[in-house]
Write a protein that binds this DNA or RNA. Sequence first.
RNA 1: GCCCGGAUGGCGGAAUUGGUAGACGCGCCAGACUCAAAAUCUGGUGAUGGCAACAUCGUGCAGGUUCGAUUCCUGUUCCGGGCACCA
Length: 861
Amino acid sequence: MASYPFKQIESRWQQQWKELELYRVQEHSSLPKFYVLDMFPYPSGAGLHVGHPLGYIASDIVSRYKRLKGFNVLHPMGYDAFGLPAEQYAIQTGQHPSITTNTNIKRFREQLDRMGFCYDWSREVRTCDPAYYRWTQWIFSLLFTHWYDPGKQSARPIADLLTHFQQYGSQNLQAHTSFQGSFTADEWNSYNATEREHILNAFRLAYIDETTVNWCQEMGTVLANEEVINDPKKGPVSERGGFPVERRKMKQWFLRITAYADRLLQGLDGLEWSESIKEIQRNWIGKSTGAELDFHLVEKPGAITVFTTRPDTIFGATFLVLAPEYEQLAELCSDAQRDAVMAYASKAKNRSEIDRMADTEKTGVFTGAMVRHPFTGKQLPVWVSDYVLSGYGTGAIMAVPAHDDRDFEYARVFDLPIVPVIHASEGTITEPLQEAYSAKEGVCFNSDFLNGLQIKEAISKAISEVVSRGIGRSKTNYKLREAGFGRQRYWGEPIPIVFDEKGVPSLVEELPVELPAVERYTPSGSGASPLAAVEHWVNTEHGTRETDTMPGWAGSSWYFLRYTDPHNAEQFASAEALNYWGQVDLYVGGSEHATGHLLYSRFWTKFLYDLGYISWDEPFRRLVNQGMIMGEDGQKMSKRWGNVVNPDDVCEDYGADTLRLYEMFLGPLTDSKPWNTNGIEGVSRFLNKFWRLYMVEDSCVVSNDEPTREELKLLHKTIQKVTSDIESMSFNTSVSAFMVAVNELQAAKCRKRAILEPLLILLAPFAPHITEELWSNLGHHNSVHCAAWPSFNPEYLTENEFNYPVSINGKTRTFISFALDAEESFIRETVCSNPDVMKWVEDKPLKKLIIVKGRIINMVI
RNA sequence: GCCCGGAUGGCGGAAUUGGUAGACGCGCCAGACUCAAAAUCUGGUGAUGGCAACAUCGUGCAGGUUCGAUUCCUGUUCCGGGCACCA
């Protein structure tokens, strides 16, 4: 028997849908909205393999289902089109990256179209399109002209800040800033532009900072920490290409994401995201609460401030440790130790963070400086060691070797005193300690006013004591770093900034700032992007252009907003469109974006919310991370392993509907699983069986006969199962529910319209082509995708009898049927007199009889 | 090292609030149709013992709670992912 004619059917309906603009959506609708989004792809030259569409199929099913349920569904697609591969290709071939990108997009589109997705392509966005990136630049401009007020918990215009400075100087200002000094209003008013900008820069949400960066000479650019990996042989190398990476000081654009750290953390609680992704973000933000304590120097004026989360262990502090980058290191150390200290520090500074972390052997040098313990007045030595990170807290710690593993190890290596001050609630500590007691549970001793307190109480007591004595303050720290925003590359959004002759930056008013044509795409090697060579572009009447471009994540941090109004030339999106579509209701994509894209999008959303452009401050209400599809050999699908399966080939051999169903049938959406070519046959067989329920030869054989109660029961069981499965995104089990239904209908030779027509609608989101064809064969002139989802009637499922499993001591021994409303005494009697049961019971006395209505009967003897 | 997941037949996987473990599919075995094959259809298929009825065992491992545990609790092993000197 030949297969149903999927080839004709699929291409014909795809063509029809396109002509009818079936999937085009409008905002003016009285229907409730639903916004389903896929993470848009980077259009690579390799095209799609069968792993990519997994999430697209899932979101397509939900979109179609929601539409059938009566929602106005926004389901758009676009391209994250700026990126390194197109630029690398340009460097090698001289071809403009936009050409490569367009070719790749065309190929992606063909592949996507072939799978029958219901995207509204009229809303496509491309991040590399000037009409799009002018708004990316516009958001950057807003970040540049705003600062963060932690009191109001909101971003505010720089203008407010200027007013404040003019009137009060730096007094009484609540701001998230890296500015450390203070000035009066008079001083401010006397400052020149350069001096003012130096201060404002410390407040702007988009600002310039000189920091040590990961410089990759080969790629001619700076890399983020997450783009650098540690090669055991070569040391730090780029994730892409494996080129060596070194440390370099460079001026860079940054976004002050840490201003939003607490809101980014709090906001997670209300989101319907997987616990693991939320946990990754929580760890990434890394909030820790504790105290800053001041340790005054013995022989010099001044103090060293340390951050600790364990102020309860203050009486166990036996020395301080400074990071090699500690600013006052040179002034602090004694003359005798200076050479040794500086030699150690410069050696440590040249090692990358990654290198330092890989090596956990404790090293360090005594600085010669002593400080006074703020409570006991005892003198403590100050050391310098690379196990203390300069970027976290104050770059200095108080070492409590008895209760911290790292300090313990250090004290061991340099033979420093170890003083225990906490013991487990049960029992005491035996000295000498074999390892640090770092548990967060126990009782203080040897600790003056903290003695006898539990750790938790001791922490708050210690902080209040520190505050009242003026030797410190309570303090919260975050691991989250500011987000580097400059790349020395060509193929990215230009940063809309010009610098005047004094180096003061200002915004370019007229957007977009378009990428100019360049002769060569190769980085200059001096740290500047290829744009720096385009003199006529760089030099403008207002000043010199910034030649860095934005990182890959800029355009993807707000694209979900643009889809609501993608062709708007006046605004990034109209308030009407934004208000109508609102938050993304369901976002489907890979979990690899946990700390990048997903965090940055949340940041930009909160920022735009603060400015009143949108009325919600979380972009993605529900997030589902699809798993990876591995090759048949269990390895990641890639050219390298030669195990790539192309969706085009599957569509060619089995059809798009089979591909869609099979990907869903493979297992739970969120799991990773291997592709198995054999398995696809089963799904293909199912669709053929399904087809033959309706069709014999070329004619539709569906009848108008009355369905039986059994048939209705099967239908409604399927409605119930498929509906709840789509809601919970358990598509694998709905596919098996369809298989069960078809098997049973085939066995019952049921060809009744009253059953087969609703079944067609149920399957339509999964297999849009075959269902459309059959729907049309049933005589309909509209699309099955515009029908109404069948409603579930529980009456058809009610049973009046149940075949009870009867177990004796928990083991099923026989089955007996009872009416569901049967009296317990009747059941008891019948069960006890049943011959099968009696055989097992013999003459043992019945201890207990458990009857769970509609489930089980259990005898305990 | 720390934090999250997970472990069920030959394979992918199913199992509601604790209530008939193995749905559905693949693979395999047998049969029907056929000159033959493909396709299709029917039956069987967790392990062990038995001609069979049936029995015993069985959800990584060891315990516990319960009339009853894949499901809950404690410990443990392995696998996957994240973080990794963050004080």
